[in-house]
Design a binder for these strands. Structure first.
Lengths: 186, 186
DNA sequence: TCCTGTCTGTACCGATCGGTACACAGCTTG
DNA sequence: CAAGCTGTGTACCGATCGGTACAGACAGGA
């Protein structure tokens, strides 16, 4: 039988897209198999825990990406203003300017939330905390920084909802632009 | 066989809750039957179109409620400041202070979006338009009113995502409070 | 009383679901 | 070459899916 040599990590992006487009429940093994090019044999070889393990692996990968690319710079950069600008740019790229939804946000609203509660909560908690840190170093007092970071993360998620609801990615870009203004003023 | 006498409209609230909690795909007929107390016979009697017609009816009911309770006052009230305050209060009650999600927002992020695209788009479009009207009568210029209303609707949706993601309804109340401040300043 | 239309429960349908079992292919190590 | 591990395809499992068919139950009007 054909041997294609793939690794667990190789299929995570495709897996993520299937979950994004069809949700956890809607992503059937048939769909997953078609999208990843892997049969059930391979799938269950890489993910013995089935769909749940696949989703968990995808969430872990997303978490790692954000931690490294977004959260760490916000926490550590010596220039918080630049770090925030970089965050907005990275977010715009990651969400394809509003054409791609946030899998974690979608899971949060879906029936899947409880199953991945720790990941879902941790993702947003880390984001808020990291952005709050940057805002404090920018000169905001703790309370204001917490409020502003909560507002910012919510604005991003809301913009993703709206952009997809109205099928208009421009909504997301406009929201990011306004958010940039609000995050620049101390 | 037992006869309970119910009407189509009577089951819409229960139907809505099932879709909220399990999503469109996750809401199986077994679940729907259990929650509404209706068997398949009754269900398909009231909704010959099956699940799709059930969801459509729920969306129509939600749309009607918002149109009457939220959008119309925003458009017509002689005191836009008061109308906006009333909107925030009605929203807080409707979403149970963050303990209840927005079905339309959840559908927008889910795989179901395309099937109910018109409803989903129309709901948010109407909200933005109505709020924009109120903001203009409050003294904002058209461009600012449009931007602010888009921001406000996104903020509400984002706060619902966050509140459910982090399992903390207080996030929603805080977001509403901050939104009130932003909408009050002309 | 009978008839007709509105409800309701239930048996049943084919399709698909997630998951398991297992045989086999091919590389790697001796 | 032989053994062993890692991938891979496929047949198969019971459960559940959305939907249909249909007969029985009840109310209102004739």
């Amino acid at each position: 039988m054909a041997r294609v040599v793939s690794e667990r990590a190789d299929v995570l992006p495709a897996l993520g897209e299937v979950f994004r487009e069809h949700g956890f429940e809607g992503a059937s093994l048939a769909l997953i198999g078609a999208r990843t090019g892997l049969g059930k044999g391979s799938l269950y070889h890489f993910f013995p825990g089935g769909k749940e393990e696949m989703a968990e692996a995808v969430l872990a990968e997303i978490d790692a990406w954000f931690t490294h690319e977004i959260f760490a710079p916000l926490r550590e950069s010596k220039d918080p203003r630049q770090a925030i600008a970089a965050m907005l740019q990275a977010i715009d790229a990651y969400f394809r300017s509003g054409r791609r939804i946030c899998l974690i946000g979608a899971f949060a609203l879906g029936a899947t939330r409880d199953r991945f509660a720790a990941r879902v909560d941790g993702y947003f908690a880390a984001w808020e905390e990291a952005l709050g840190q940057a805002l404090m170093r920018l000169g905001h007092r703790k309370k204001a920084a917490v409020a502003l970071s909560e507002d910012a993360v919510a604005a991003i998620q809301g913009a993703l909802v709206l952009a997809r609801a109205r099928n208009d990615p421009a909504i997301f870009r406009r929201a990011l632009a306004r958010l940039g203004d609000r995050l620049r003023t101390v």
